[in-house]
């Protein structure tokens, strides 16, 4: 016979083992809480420490403050740019170009990618061609676009369209091509054929891959529009950075760089948020 010792029961009617387990659990919880707080402190604290180090060493002339403008001076420059309305205007120009190009590229890329994934003859005809074109850095198309469309908004937007289109086309195509055949079979078995199969099985199942494309291409789009504005624009954040170099105003250049970084972070954050809201099943899987 097994001789399991009976748990002693205290005056509150609770068993001793229960109390021990509860204490063990709260200890684990406390440990986990401490770890999380540590993560947070490190991730926020490290950049702050680096910025302070930067400030201190620039003030002490360990590094050349004319090149490595100390943070306080960058903030001052930012204030000036804002008070003159320059920074807002440049953000507006860059965002407008980026978003118009992004939306056009996303819509066309997803549609073309899905169609190529579903229709074999079209895939055979265009997929290798698109793969080859994707290998050409899209920014290299800019001179050609300038020749065709002249200096204006169109060629700038089109470079963003190009990079977004290819990323989404490739992701949507891959999603359909690598689709779990068991789910397609399951869809057919329960009466989803042709358009219904696409609408209720293939499309929802392809969304994770499409969202990956959305995240990747917004970052690439920002890179491309910045580079485009370096050379082919007289406004926008790219122009701000490039012009500051030509006028040797590193403080303004830093303002431009930081703003570009912030725009990237915020746009990516918005897309991640939309992803979480539209794919709750995927978010729960990751947890």
């Amino acid at each position: 016979m097994a001789t399991t010792p009976m748990a002693a029961v205290d005056e509150n009617g609770q068993s001793e083992t229960g109390a021990v387990v509860a204490e063990a659990i709260s200890k684990l919880r406390r440990k986990e809480r401490v770890r999380r707080r540590m993560d947070l402190v490190l991730s926020v604290g490290t950049p702050i420490v680096l910025i302070i180090l930067w400030q201190v060493s620039a003030d002490a002339h360990f590094i050349d403050p004319r090149i490595f403008t100390p943070p306080t001076q960058i903030i001052r420059a930012a204030r000036q740019l804002i008070s003159k309305g320059i920074l807002q205007k440049d953000i507006g120009f860059t965002l407008a170009r980026l978003l118009v190009g992004y939306v056009i590229g996303v819509i066309s890329g997803v549609i073309v990618g899905l169609i190529l994934g579903l229709v074999r003859p079209l895939r055979s005809a265009f997929s290798p061609l698109f793969a080859a074109l994707y290998a050409v850095p899209q920014i290299a198309l800019l001179p050609l676009l300038l020749v065709i469309f002249g200096i204006g908004e169109t060629p700038k937007i089109l470079t963003v369209v190009a990079v977004t289109f290819f990323v989404l086309e490739i992701n949507a195509l891959a999603a359909v091509r690598n689709f779990d055949p068991r789910l397609i079979e399951s869809g057919k078995a329960f009466g989803a054929h042709k358009f219904k199969l696409f609408r209720h099985v293939i499309l929802p199942g392809s969304l994770p891959s499409i969202f990956t494309g959305l995240r990747v291409s917004i970052a690439l789009g920002l890179v491309v529009i910045t580079a485009t504005e370096f050379v082919a624009s007289n406004n926008g954040l790219g122009f701000l950075v490039w012009n500051s170099w030509q006028l040797f105003q590193p403080d303004q250049m830093y303002v431009g760089l930081v703003t570009i970084a912030l725009v990237g972070v915020i746009l990516t954050g918005i897309i991640v948020l939309i992803e979480r809201l539209s794919l709750p099943w995927l978010v729960r899987r990751k947890r």
Binding site: D180, L183, E185, S186, A189, F190, V201, P204, G205, W281
Partner: peptide, 12 residues
């Protein structure tokens, strides 16, 4: 109707 292994369920 079909009864597959569990993988036939739609994760979304």
């Amino acid at each position: 109707a079909f009864l597959f292994q569990e993988y036939g369920l739609f994760p979304w």
